[in-house]
């Protein structure tokens, strides 16, 4: 067995030198790199945490904003709904008023048309009645008809009150006849009227073919209509009143 102390010393020095060299070139730089990376990672983690906190804060802010937007949206919707309801009611009221106006206008037009039709019908009826009455009167015995109308005139005067008859005394009366009256007839008429009034009458005679048949007595404040024309007018008036009553019903 041999043990070389030189070799022991060489190996001891070699190992010590190797420890120093590896400390210088391996352990120290690698450990420093690991520490630097750990520090970097720690810094990055801290920054990431800070960023995360910022992001969470921003997220919370956005959530709050969204909530505010939702509330604002609801409020706007409610306002819009309210406005729409009001506009709808306004439109409905306007439409209703317009419809009522149209209805009233149409009703008035309908009434006017009905009245016009009725008036036209009455006019036509009157015309027809006048035609018929004229034709009838032409076929009747003229003196007999005149006598009948004169009798009805006298009866009308007799039906007046005494006050009315007294008021007619001395007043100039106009006797309107449907046909020309000759003097004897005029005298007989004047006598009959004087007899009916009880006082002499101041008569003037006038011919009006529109009366068809009969005699009418007129004064400034008195009128006694006794002719077919008057009868037709009364009938027309009665028809008009009846039509008005029908419309009212």
């Amino acid at each position: 067995m041999t043990f070389d102390y030189w070799t022991l010393g060489f190996q001891a020095v070699n190992v010590l030198v190797l420890i120093w060299l590896l400390h210088r070139f391996f352990w120290k730089p690698v450990a420093a790199m690991i520490a630097a990376r750990q520090a970097t990672v720690a810094t990055l983690l801290d920054e990431a945490k800070a960023k995360q906190a910022e992001a969470e804060a921003a997220l919370a802010k956005i959530a709050a904003t969204k909530a505010g937007l939702a509330a604002e949206r609801d409020a706007m919707l409610a306002t819009a709904r309210k406005d729409a309801q009001a506009a709808r009611e306004t439109l409905l009221a306007e439409a209703r008023a317009e419809a009522e106006a149209l209805h009233a206008t149409a009703k008035a037009a309908r009434v006017r048309a009905a009245e016009t039709l009725k008036a036209n019908a009455i006019d036509e009826a009157q015309g027809l009645a006048l035609t018929i009455a004229g034709q009838l009167a032409a076929r009747l015995d003229g003196p007999a008809t005149d006598a009948a109308f004169l009798r009805w005139l006298v009866e009308g005067l007799a039906a007046l009150s005494d006050t009315e008859r007294t008021a007619l005394a001395g007043v100039e009366l106009e006797l309107v006849s449907a046909a020309d009256q000759d003097s004897p007839v005029q005298d007989r008429i004047a006598a009959a009227i004087t007899n009916a009034l009880g006082t002499p009458a101041k008569l003037t005679f006038r011919t009006e073919p529109a009366l068809i048949a009969g005699h009418e007595l007129h004064a400034p404040h008195f009128s006694l209509r006794n002719s077919w024309r008057a009868d037709l007018d009364r009938i027309a008036a009665a028809l008009g009143e009846k039509g008005d009553l029908s419309d009212a019903a």
């Binding site: 030189w6 070699n14 190797l18």
Partner: peptide, 18 residues
């Protein structure tokens, strides 16, 4: 001074490692 083979191998190992 004797230089043993172990010393030479050690130098080689040192060289490789360093």
């Amino acid at each position: 001074v004797p230089i043993m083979a172990s010393v030479v191998v050690t130098w080689a190992i040192m060289a490789v490692l360093v």
